[in-house]
Design a protein around this nucleic acid. Structure first.
Length: 532
RNA sequence: GUUCCCUUCGUCUAGAGGCCUAGGACACUACCCUUUCACGGUGGUGACACGGGUUCGAAUCCCGUAGGGAACGCCA
């Protein structure tokens, strides 16, 4: 069996430079922003090199599994437009010739290798209980020694065959440990694509490779077996694995296999008080990719932000190539920083605003509708039933040369445009809000109302509105106003602010003429009349 | 305790001994444009963690120190 598996690797038939990468999440909960980041990088690099990226489910810790863990992973990556060439596609089905891609389905493979290692004296059964190991660890800590199973602490390492047989016959439970030949006194070089060549002490830990509790492998063993049998050329993983590199190198050596190339990426961090720390699955809602989807950030905004974290020259590229798809950006691990980046919501917001501003009217509507369908039961019926009205609203100043950038995410859209709907609109008390004399307010609104008869011709309307401005004692010429502000009730800007308040209840908005055209003159007149 | 990694504006970073009186982006800010806001334009504030060396010359190389992070699990 083993030989057939090993011979199969050659069928990948890789051309020089083609990368086989893998994304290897554990189905233990929601999908983390960091997983999306890793997935993006792994799939991008594979695609760019003409290789393939696999999805491998690392479910060797049966205690922490979630029933729908795999489904969550598949859904999240699919939603984020991250696609794998091999791996599980549905519960029970998978694509690719190097599977199974779910580690719990590979138990026989790991056990077969473990047996071969024991037979060759490269691994051995260890009968130490967790309690005994804990005790040893406490002792080591007390004596300020390195903790772990090495040297004289590796008590089962040199058990005789007779002793082993005796314990086995007594029904003792055991784990399988790899027999390390390294010494902590000797140093070795390890290579990392991002960090370069580093000198570290050799591994001397007799790490567990097969657990007693369920017969499944530990991460270390599964990594070595799977990445060899699946033909992985590049292992890109979190930098928490960097310290395990000597162990992994030694395990590849013991197996007689060539190790893949490694790159260790720093995790995305956040500020907690004055300290930086990793985004935490438990403490930080924004660690969950769903959080961003629910907030209504477009998928492309999330991906662009992540790409920017991976290679900060991404934004230069984007500036030069505003219309190219993300996939055209040439990602380069050599440009990835070894230090961990702080998550920056301001930056995400800025990217998201730009991306939303670049959508065509239809795209914007479709995306907003899809968001509402999933996340806003209250807003969705309106989005669906009043499609043409909402499209018109979204289209205001959209196809201008200078596009509006006032929508940051779909989550705030309903509030952004609420004044277009009578049931969501509350008329303010103008006198209170503006502090102006009621007679002045009346003059403003009736003047504005009068100009409305030219509303279908934008230029004529604006001329009439300027005339109304002057008639109401405001000043339509900004320069003249600035030269002598005391001579007027205010400038045309102040005049229009009063109009805006009456019309939409806010001082700020897109172009008033466009709003009126979308809203319809009936509604405009009704709203103005309320204040007169 | 042992071992490893990291350290340039508030944030992400450019920077491979002279091109650096340190560049860009986000944020902040001033002015301009403008019927408001947003956009856009032009500026501004703002950083090489510290100390020693090497060198004619150091953000860049070396050595220390400090700060932050990680690993040392029958978790990944």
């Amino acid at each position: 069996m083993l030989q057939a598996l090993e011979e199969k690797i050659a069928t990948r038939n890789l051309a020089p430079g083609q990368m086989v990468t893998r994304m290897a999440p554990s189905p233990t909960g929601f999908v983390h922003l960091g997983s999306i980041y890793m997935g993006l990088i792994n799939t991008t690099l594979a695609r760019q090199s003409g290789g393939v990226c696999m999805l491998r489910i690392e479910d060797t810790d049966q205690k922490r599994q979630l029933d729908d863990g795999i489904a969550q992973i598949l859904t999240a990556f699919h939603t984020l437009h991250i696609h794998f060439g091999e791996g599980p596609v549905l519960e029970g089905a998978e694509k690719g010739d190097f599977g199974p891609y779910i580690q719990s389905h590979r138990k026989d493979i790991y056990q077969a290798y473990a047996k071969a290692l024991i037979r060759d004296g490269k691994a051995y059964p260890c009968f130490c209980s967790s309690e005994e190991l804990d005790k040893v660890r406490d002792e080591q800590t007390l004596k300020k020694e390195r903790t772990g199973y090495y040297g004289k602490y590796a008590r089962c390492r040199d058990l005789s065959d007779a002793e082993i047989l005796q314990k086995l016959q007594a029904g003792a439970s055991f784990v399988v440990r790899i027999r390390s030949n390294g010494s902590h006194e000797n140093r070795m070089d390890v290579k990392d694509i991002i960090r370069g060549t580093r000198s570290v002490p050799q591994n001397d830990m007799d790490a567990i490779i097969i657990k007693a509790s369920d017969g499944l492998p530990t991460y270390h063993f599964a990594h070595v077996i799977d990445d060899h049998l699946m033909g992985t050329t590049h292992v890109l993983r979190g930098d928490e694995w960097f310290p395990s590199l000597p162990l992994h190198m030694e395990m590849f050596y013991i197996m007689g296999w060539k190790a893949p190339k490694y790159a260790h990426l720093s995790p995305i961090q956040k500020m907690d008080g004055t300290a930086k720390r990793k985004l935490s699955k438990r403490k930080d809602p924004e660690a969950n990719i769903e959080f961003f989807l629910e907030q209504g950030y477009p998928v492309n905004a999330i991906l662009e932000y992540l790409l920017n974290l991976a290679n900060s020259d991404f934004e230069d590229w984007r500036k030069k190539n505003p219309a190219l798809p993300l996939a055209d950006f040439a990602l380069d691990l050599k440009k990835t920083s070894p230090s961990g980046a702080l998550f920056d919501l301001d930056k995400l917001n800025s990217i998201s605003r730009r991306i939303i501003s670049e959508y065509s009217n239809t795209e914007a509507y479709d995306l907003a509708l899809a968001w509402a369908e999933r996340f806003s039961p209250a807003f969705y019926p309106r989005m669906a039933n009043e499609a043409s009205y909402i499209k018109a609203i979204l289209n205001i100043e959209r196809e201008n040369v200078r596009r509006r950038k006032d929508i940051t995410r779909w989550g705030t859209l309903q509030d952004d445009i609420s004044y277009f709907f009578d049931d969501l609109f509350t008329a303010p008390d103008l006198a209170t809000v503006t502090g102006k004399n009621p007679d002045v307010l009346k003059a403003v609104l009736s003047g504005f109302m009068g100009a409305l008869e030219h509303a279908t011709d934008r230029d004529a309307w604006w001329e009439a509105t300027k005339a109304a401005t002057d008639a109401a004692g405001f000043c339509s010429d900004t320069k003249a106003y600035k030269a002598n502000p005391d001579a007027f009730h205010g400038s045309i800007a102040d005049f229009m602010k009063i109009v805006r308040l009456a019309l939409i209840g806010r001082e700020d908005s897109p172009d008033v003429h466009e709003i009126m055209m979308v809203m319809g003159l009936e509604k405009v007149k009704t709203r103005l009349a309320k204040h007169m």
